[in-house]
Structures are given as structure tokens and as C-alpha cells.
Design a protein around this nucleic acid. Structure first.
Lengths: 109, 109
DNA sequence: GTATATACCTCGGACCGCAAGGTATGGGAA
DNA sequence: TTCCCATACCTTGCGGTCCGAGGTATATAC
């Protein structure tokens, strides 16, 4: 039992991925960097988290992908489907509810 | 992949338990009811979550327990140790950081 | 030509939550 | 009085998520 609270951030990787892809098409390696950067390293899921997640999300129909070669480099760009957008909205709502609930207990009088 | 976001609440059970016990001594069954009630069912970890958690927290020195019989019923009351208070503070801080980070991405312009 | 950054991937271990099950007692209803 | 429900404790197995470590390959910079 280290002084590590990684469990608290469980599920947030998916929320971050969906939200980033809602704004623009991105590829895996780029997503890994983007999450770490935009959260100031508070969240920083590695490739071992993001790649399997992308595969699962695509399989479930939340994402679609297309191959694209840029500067001789082959990349797989992912973008949000309608189903993915729906899932993102639901997750964001749930996150909001969670925040309220935790705040209720944490800052109770 | 069900339409269930339970993963988002990972680790929050511990945070809730520590916070409740900071305010007053409580027993397991009571804690299960209290979390559900005070979060309006947004969080509602079952006994299969809470009891093992209490054991682990006691083993790690974050909680201490004492047996007490009330109305012929035997209960195990838990309370926070200094170490537990420290852990609670650290977790609450981490939760706060997480909130900021997620908000940063979720509500980005 | 060799190291670094880019870009993809998988695997095993660990942790957490959950449903389902098990034990036992007290109190109220039939 | 008998039976069910709420109380109160517990464990086990499954599944989902994380992480680190490792593997492959190419382009660019030194």
C-alpha cells in the first residue's frame, strides 16, 4: 500500500480520450502526450493504457479510425462517432454527479 | 462494455470511509448505509467493498477498532488514527488536483 | 552509423468494485 | 410459536482498469 492514489483516476483515461477526440481527430501517440500536457501531469496514462483503450472503444463503436501516412510515418487517426459522443456526454454527467456527491461528504458541516 | 461508469468511482470508497470516520466512530454496516444516504445513492459501495476495505485500512494502520455490544448486537466500531488522518488529507488533495485537471480538459475553450 | 524521437503493439501483475453467497441474532408479524 | 426481515459480520470469483516492461519499426539529427 504505497502512497499512491492511482485508483482515484480510474476510468478518467476514457473520459479524456473521448473529450480530446470530440474536438479533433488524433492518433494514439499524440493522445498520450496531450493528456499529460493538458492536465499538467496530474493524469498521464501510458501507452499501455491508451492503445488497448482505443481498440476497445473502436470495437464498441464509440470511435472510428483511418490510416494516414504523414512524412513517411504511418499513423492511425481516431475520431468520435455519434455513439461515442453520447457516451462522452453520459460520462461527463456522471463525473459531475460524482463531484457533487463527494463534495457533499468531504465538505459537510 | 456496459453503459456503466463504475470505474470512475474507483478509490472513492476509501476516501468516503476515511472522511466519515474522521467525524465519528462508526461500524461497517452503518458506513455502508451512510455513504449511500449522504451521496444520494450516487456512490453506494456494498458490504463486499466496505468490509475488506476496513480490514485493509486497519492492517495498514489508518484505522483502529474496538468491539462493542449494543442491544445484544455485537458491532465493531472503527475510528481514524493519526496515520489515517494524514492519508485522508493526502487523498482529498489528490482528489482536488484531479478535479482541476479533468475540468481543464472537459471545459477547455 | 548510431542514438533519439516517433509510432505502433502486447503481456503479466496488481488493485478495486461488484454480485452472490454464507453465518448468526434480534424483533415483529402471522 | 414460528417464520421472515433487518441487522451485522464475513469471503470468494469475475471483470475492468491501471501500470511497467518489453517488443517492433522508421525517420531525423548528430
Amino acid at each position: 500500500m504505497a502512497s499512491d492514489f492511482s485508483a482515484l483516476s480510474s476510468g478518467l483515461s476514457e473520459l479524456m480520450v473521448l473529450r480530446l477526440l470530440q474536438r479533433q481527430e488524433m492518433y494514439g501517440y499524440e493522445i498520450v502526450q496531450a493528456i499529460a500536457e493538458r492536465t499538467a501531469q496530474v493524469l498521464s496514462p501510458g501507452e499501455g493504457v491508451v492503445y488497448p483503450l482505443l481498440h476497445a472503444l473502436e470495437k464498441s463503436g464509440a470511435l472510428k479510425s483511418r490510416r494516414k501516412t504523414v512524412g513517411g510515418r504511418s499513423r492511425i487517426y481516431y475520431s468520435l462517432t455519434a455513439r461515442g459522443a453520447k457516451r462522452l456526454a453520459a460520462m461527463a454527467d456522471h463525473w459531475s454527479a460524482l463531484n457533487g456527491a463527494v463534495g457533499m461528504v468531504l465538505h459537510a458541516v
